[in-house]
Amino acid sequence: MKEQFVKTEELSFSYQAENENEAIPAVKNLSVEFSSGEYVAILGHNGSGKSTFAKLLNLILEPVSGRLFVDGKERTAELSEGELLDLRRTVGMVFQNPDNQLVATIVEEDVAFGPENLGYPREELRKRVDDALATVGMTEYASYEPHRLSGGQKQRVAIAGVLAMTPRCIIFDESTAMLDPSGRREVLSTIRRLNREEGITIINITHYMNEAAEADRILVMNDGELLFEGTPDEVFSRRDELLAVGLEVPQSAELVFRLREAGIDLPTEALSTPEKCAACIADAYFAKRKGGAVDG
């Protein structure tokens, strides 16, 4: 078992309604654990509380109740400034809109923004910026103005800005939702590399099923609660439950379910990738043919 990195106990949060005194719950009694180096996806429809949960993890929002442990230490709203900065350095965040998270007018200065705030000396800043830009493959754009970059490039700069703080975990809050397919590929392959090569814990909040399929584990959220969790194979085998909360399964898995409904006996244990689905369908086909049931 890997070392535990984040743990929440009964974490809850409510937004204050504007006119009335009632509170609108966004996250309800969430107890989850992430281990170090894990790649987790959080699925949920818009408004399921998944973004709120992400903001609780680095105390951008203060939980109403419950406890949060990061890297073995309990983090509460009464942290000292130093501890709070340490938490935010350790758990970095990349948001949805690439335009709204770049601060500086030049790429390398934006990447330097986090480390600058942490007060590293100049030589260290230089090294961190150069390393971070190299990791996301944006070195040649170091002196560009952000508004001349594509969406995918902007998000890679945002990732570099987080990387330059040498975090142990990065939360991606629907970071690919506003990108085109090539931008999405760029960002996803960067995420994969950070997880595999740098050993960074990844929490990817998304509503793209095929993105979630890349994770080690998927948490499915609905109405602020954890609905269920499991490996992609396990989660995508519960297609009807996903449909009921406004989600779906990837196209390949959907096909297997429809064939099953039409009376073809197919197993649904391993449907997280097209390859697995193809294997499942092909096996059934050849088994049937051997039995002589398929004509022509």
């Binding site: 680095n58 951008i60 935010r88 965040m93 998270q101 923004f113 705030n117 987080v162 703080m165």
Partner: peptide, 9 residues
Amino acid sequence: NAMECRCYH
């Protein structure tokens, strides 16, 4: 939000 996450103080 983003600036806070990047330790701006």
